[in-house]
Design a protein around this nucleic acid. Structure first.
Lengths: 198, 198
DNA sequence: AGGTAACCATACCGGTCGGTATACTCGCAG
DNA sequence: CTGCGAGTATACCGACCGGTATGGTTACCT
């Protein structure tokens, strides 16, 4: 039973996790990103977290919930990291602020280097109504809107087009830096920022 | 034993496949792309091909070989498709030829719409020395060189930079059209071709 | 003192995983 | 006629999958 602890996938607030719950989500996040979602079993997650499968299911109810929580938390952390590197809007050169997105990506990418967690997750989930797809789409939309804002801030002619294009460059750079085996793709993308926004 | 039929991963020539072998590779290709590699078991592949697991292992030796063959064949077919849509170099406007890459992508993308098979496969394979990674990198490099050629053909100032950038836009558009849930990303990418090559 | 939430340990469930073994049938080329 | 490669059918293997069940131990709260 344990109805009170069977966590639903709440997308509005960080679910209140117990100590073991935190360890489980931490372990799952590392493993999912490093090895892929389907490649990681719940037994391994529990073992790596120094706890048991029983506790895992008491905390999360299913592996799918754990996956959705992993993606959601990763999105939040990436967005917070990005905000901290970007500084406040209106601070300094707008083009330079846009370039800092790629600096942040490069830094973030250095630890792990398995590419975009959301693109990777999308490759592994089947149906389009999977709860994970919701999180993936939301993250991509957030990035899209960020680039639109930056394009407007930089007073690019046709900021909608420039912002969208910059987003495509961003996604492409992340793919090429990992699956494409071209580590300097991010640097090349950053070098193109001024041109795209100009 | 059956040493003669245990196909190695030969990347130079299409391996000679028996009738059942063809059916197996066809079935595996569809299933791998539509549902993901780890999500598809060898039992299902054999059943869908109207044959047995025994025959599958007589023909390919392992699932990994089947995966590598799936990716290799898909790369070849995409490249052939692309060549047929692009026409010969020097034919017509060079910028228009570059735009046709995105027309081809859109057409290819319509059937399936599960994104780039190589990016998806990369998300599912673990180690960097997996034979599949070889095929993935080769495909991305082929696309990169295609865009470099097109940029030179279009007589872009700094064709190296323009070609690389166009490649990033291409990869980003494919990601956004699928994982990003933004179906018109490819059209937007095509609209940017002239600007990037100009 | 008693209740309860959190936790650990372990065993179990049916099902599927990749891969192997055995044995039989067919068509064709020497 | 015979041998052989291709194919079918089926049963099996140990390992692992996601998920459940039972039971016991802390520690804190009322």
């Amino acid at each position: 039973m344990t109805p009170a602890t069977t966590a639903a996938v709440d997308f509005e607030s960080e679910p209140v996790l117990t100590r073991a719950g935190h360890r489980l989500l931490d372990a799952a996040s590392e493993l999912f990103y490093a090895r892929g979602i389907r490649a990681v079993g719940v037994d391994l997650i529990a073992e790596e977290a120094g706890t048991t499968k029983k506790t895992l299911y008491d905390c999360f109810g299913s592996k799918d919930v754990l996956v959705a929580l992993y993606l959601r938390r990763r999105a939040i952390r990436w967005q917070e990291f990005l905000r901290s590197r970007l500084g406040d809007p209106g601070t300094g050169d707008a083009v330079d602020r846009a370039r800092r997105v790629f600096d942040a990506l490069e830094e973030w990418h250095e630890s792990g280097a398995r590419g975009c967690a959301f693109v990777n997750a999308y490759a592994e989930v089947g149906s389009a109504n999977d709860p994970a797809v919701h999180v993936i789409r939301a993250e991509k939309q957030w990035m899209h809107e960020l680039f639109l804002r930056l394009a407007r801030e930089a007073e690019a002619p046709d900021p909608e087009t420039a912002g969208s294009l910059l987003h495509l460059v961003y996604e492409g750079a992340l793919v090429q830096a990992t699956a494409g085996g071209e580590p300097d793709a991010i640097g090349r993308a950053r070098a193109a920022v001024a041109g795209v926004l100009g």
